[in-house]
């Protein structure tokens, strides 16, 4: 029986001198896998136009019915995306989302991309419906200003 105890303790001692495997989140964050599927972002083209054309194919592909899209028509005065159509309303309910990535697959313009952010806790259900301005990446012009 003592043999068993010593055997167990030896493992304990051995690991005592090895570096810890845990990280002290949130001060330290572990890098995520390359193909990690976190919170969605709506991408832009280099010229700042939105990639999303409001086609609703992501909503159609979504197995959890988490995406809601309403489209509208671009005008020359008010242009959001190339072409005729843009997403006036784009909402993802993060409580429903199962992060399967089907939306990304379905997207014909590579507008919706599941990025690395997984910090999605909140105090209210309403705030977990991410609207278009929350999902859209900043306009390149704005980034330059802040930089």
């Amino acid at each position: 029986m003592i043999g068993e105890i010593l055997k167990g303790m030896s493992i304990t001692f051995k690991t005592m001198f090895q570096p810890p495997t845990t990280v002290s989140y949130p001060e330290v964050k572990k890098p995520v896998a390359e193909r990690f599927r976190g919170r969605h972002e709506l991408k832009r083209y280099d010229n700042g136009l939105e990639r999303c054309i409001g086609c609703s194919l992501c909503a159609a592909a979504c197995p959890a019915d988490a995406i809601f899209v309403e489209a509208a028509e671009n005008t020359d005065e008010e242009r959001y995306s190339p072409g005729e159509r843009y997403a006036k309303v784009y909402e993802i309910n993060m409580l429903r989302c199962i992060f399967c990535g089907y939306c990304e697959d379905a997207c014909p313009t590579e507008a919706v991309v599941l990025e690395k952010n997984y910090e999605l806790a909140s105090y209210s259900r309403e705030s977990l419906i991410y609207t278009k301005d929350m999902l859209l990446v900043p306009h390149p012009a704005d980034i330059q200003k802040t930089a």
Partner: peptide, 9 residues
């Protein structure tokens, strides 16, 4: 109906 919805919706 222009861009107001997709027909399957």
């Amino acid at each position: 109906f222009r861009f107001r919805a997709r027909v399957w919706e």
